[in-house]
Design a protein around this nucleic acid. Structure first.
Lengths: 203, 203
DNA sequence: CCCCTTTGTGAACGATCGTGCTAAATCCTT
DNA sequence: AAGGATTTAGCACGATCGTTCACAAAGGGG
């Protein structure tokens, strides 16, 4: 009962790395088994089907993301400081290649967005979760009087997410890390334009 | 010499549709042959290898994109009007699903961004081309005095591209077409903030 | 220490993949 | 209409895919 969990974790650790580079479809049980030097059926039996393996990979990646981005940001107080740390932390998460192929969910979303099914649903749920976290932090900031009361939270969070996603895409595709500076500048400009007190924005 | 071109075009037309949904890797010669009701080797022989087929698909998609977005925008005069039509046209191109899976290059870029090779290079070149077109239009606007002379063209075009890409991603993944309105609002806000004459921005 | 459950192995299956090869069908030229 | 070149069909190959099944190894509880 302990051994099983250990190999399962080892499989998923490799799987998220492969999937972030080659895609969730590029995950093959045979390849996974070969690289981990175990038998193919050993890997297979642990998940029951390829789709289940893919879903488990998405869930594992979600935990990695939360640990890398969300959890640290929640050390900051609710409101503008937390919102900023979510964005800045996301940029760091992408730049440091927590997943070797850049943001796991950016890859997975693009791969499955037009293909209905459980995988797409799982990826969409993860991204909805991220959007909500961002929106919640922005709404807190507004209600705390740190952002102008008239500001459109949906518009703001859409733009923030767009900027950080674009930085990830450009960095991975073109190897151009200046995109992170552009995104950072964009995020700060957006926040400063709506902030009631410029000094409430850290860094 | 005519027959060959005709089937080649038919293959590529189907290929771009499949690839925009299932990815360039999801393209299989056998499937393509079955759906077009021709022989597998007939399809294969026309391209010589799968990679060559994929590269031809990227090239074909590029032409579709130029026809749908770039060419119409170039009917507008250089400068702010053209820049706006590039962005607005891109949003229409995505919303109308010129490719069934949303923007072909958003999919292809996410699929190959972390995998070196000729396909990645072709996709990257197409996106660089698009970025340059956007930047050129913005620079024209600046030199024509339609945008403030101090504005950062790289920052502006990065943000414009980020907004329209995010709208595509969100619409395809979540079926949420309000993203196009958010992107449109974001683009106009960015342009109006830098425009020297608010009435120079059409629509 | 033995038994029984959990966990992993090994071989095999049908399917599909990309890729050659050989012939037949089709087209264009003369 | 005939001949030569292009284009497509048909078949076979090795490889890899996901999946199944019968069996061996290992583990912990009585």
């Amino acid at each position: 009962m302990l051994r099983g969990e250990r190999t399962r974790a080892a499989v998923l650790e490799h799987a998220i790395g492969i999937a972030s580079v080659e895609g969730l479809d590029g995950l093959s049980i045979g390849r996974l088994a070969a690289e981990l030097e175990v038998s193919k059926s050993g890997v297979f039996a642990r998940f029951g089907s390829k789709e289940e393996l893919q879903l488990a990979t998405v869930a594992a990646a979600r935990e990695v993301f939360v640990d890398a981005v969300v959890r640290p940001a929640f050390e900051a107080p609710p409101g503008l400081a937390r919102l900023w740390r979510l964005c800045a932390g996301w940029l760091t998460y992408s730049r440091e290649r927590i997943f070797p192929g850049g943001c796991f969910f950016a890859s997975a979303a693009a791969e499955y967005d037009a293909r209905p099914g459980r995988i797409r649903d799982a990826v969409a749920a993860a991204l909805t979760d991220w959007s909500s976290t961002l929106a919640r932090a922005a709404e807190d900031a507004r209600q705390l009087g740190q952002l102008e009361s008239t500001c459109d939270i949906r518009q703001l969070t859409f733009e923030l997410a767009a900027l950080v996603d674009a930085a990830n895409a450009r960095s991975v595709l073109h190897g151009d890390d200046s995109a992170y500076d552009l995104a950072r500048t964009g995020v700060r400009t957006r926040l400063l334009a709506l902030a009631t007190d410029q000094d409430a924005l850290p860094d």
